[in-house]
Structure formats: structure tokens, C-alpha cells
Amino acid sequence: MGFLTQRRDRQLAAMQAAGRTVGRSLWQDALRRFRSNKAAMGSVFVLAFISLMAIFAPMLSPHTLEDFYWEYILVPPTLENGHWFGTDANGRDMFVRTFYGARVSLTIGVMTTAVALLIGVTWGSVAGYFGGRIDNIMMRIVDVLYALPLLFFIIILVTVFGRNIYLVFIGIGAVEWLTMSRIVRGQTLSVKQKEYVEAARAIGLSNLVIVRRHVVPNIIGPVIVFVTLLIPTTILVESYLSFLGLGVQEPMTSWGTLISQGAASIDTGPWLLVIPGTFLAITLFCFNFIGDGLRDALDPEGR
């Protein structure tokens, strides 16, 4: 990413030296502005670090999820015995469990939000832009799905297809895009009245190009705010599904599961709550900073 922009910058400089003005797009500008936002860039690095740890720490660690250390039960974090984050009431290594949990929670948070974003923005912007009967039909479908309780929906999925973590992705994603599509539809209704949308029709652009290039970029602010709220929501929804036995199952774990277990043993082993809780909090902070950074970067008027 950095390499590419550097090359583009050099190209720009060369062309400007040759007396030509070269156009930049919103995304190039946005990237430049995002990179100058320290909080957002710091958050990107922290998140990247947590993700790398989630990928590699369980691989490289001598411990696995199935190992029970009977001689180390409820040991607090220490550097001496190799259990850096301590162990839980069953003598399992918390370091490995925390990063296994990170895999599940981050995947659920990012994947379901991405699914909700994709479906919700497409659905809502198409419904809002075309309006009339199309809008009516599409939004009534949303209303019907809204009426379906998440828990009920996931229980059906689990009974039909068996217990599977992907069903949790599908279940949460299928519910969360509904709110997204409503937000996007409302914003689209106001943006499509703008004269620049009419100007886009006057230069012969097709409806889909207008939605993609003129409508969606102008509704991105509220969407990003919602996304930063949606990621923690999905992580927490996963934890209560797991608590009910519908999500991940032992010995696999997630941050939500770890936190609920840690909360139960807060007086005997506070680190069981504090460590996964801290990771979750840091992650959510990072997503918030990144969301703010993106929103500001994509808004030329906020400069």
C-alpha cells in the first residue's frame, strides 16, 4: 500500500515537473489524509499486531487448547513457568486461549460486519435510489426479517445444519444487515434529491454507476459510524450465543466466552477476566479510531 502510493507520488511529481496537472481521486486523497491521522494509523498497527498474534501465537506456542496442566491450576500470570497469561481453573494455558479466542472474535467481528456492510449498503441504496414499488417490496422484506428474533433464527439454523461456527456468521450477518440497509436507505433518499445526482443522469450515467459513484460515497459517514458500533456488537452477540451453547464449543473459545468465564471467577482469578477484557477493549478502541479516521478522511469538507 505504502509502496504503491509512493510510486504514485513520484509519478505525480514527475508529471507536475513536466508542466501538467494530474488529477487525484477521492480515494488517493483519503488515503493520504488517513495516513496523517496518528490515532487511526496507530490503531491500524495495534490491530495488525493483535491479528498477527492471533494467527501465529497458537502455532508457535508449546501449549495447545487440549493441554491440561494439573500442577498449574489457577496460576496467575508470570514469566517463570511458561504460562505468561496464567492458567484457568482447569489448568489450561491462558496465552493460547486468549489468542485462539482472538481468532474467533476478530473473524466474527470483521466477517459478519463485512457481510452486513455489503448486503446492507447494496440493498438500502438500491431501494432508496429506485424508490416506488421496488423500495416498497425491498423494505417490506427487511421488515419481515426484522420480526424474526436472532436467537430463534440461529436455533433453527443449528437444528437444521448442526453446530457450526459459520452458522453464527450467517445468523448474525443476516440480522445485522437489516439495520444497515435502513440507515443507508434513509441517507440515499436525501442524497438522491441533490442536483449532482441529476447532473449525473444528464451526462448519461447508468443508474448503477450513479449509485456507486455519486450516492454511496456521500452516505459513507453514517455508515462508518454504524460499522464501528457493529463490530463490538457482533463480538458480544457471539459471546452470548456461546454462553447458550450455540456458538463455539469447548475446547475452542472466544473472547466473549473467556470474559463470561472470567467474570464468574473474578475473586479467585481476576486475570481470567482482565486479560481477555483488555484485549477486547483495545480492539474496540482501535476499530473506533479507525472508523473516525476513515470518516474524516473520506469527507473533503471536514479538512
Binding site: 477521492l26 449532482y196 441529476e198 449525473a200 460515497p217
Partner: peptide, 23 residues
């Protein structure tokens, strides 16, 4: 449509705020 064009009343509202003038 390349032969028939339109200029609007509200100059700012007729330009997409997220596009550069060049774009």
C-alpha cells in the same frame, strides 16, 4: 445526452462534494 446539457441553479449542490473538480 452529450448534445443536450444542463446547468443548475444552486452551484454548490450541483457538484458532488466527494469528487475533485478534475474528476
Amino acid at each position: 445526452r452529450s448534445e443536450l446539457q444542463l446547468v443548475f441553479q444552486d452551484p454548490l449542490a450541483s457538484l458532488n462534494p466527494r469528487m475533485t473538480v478534475g474528476g
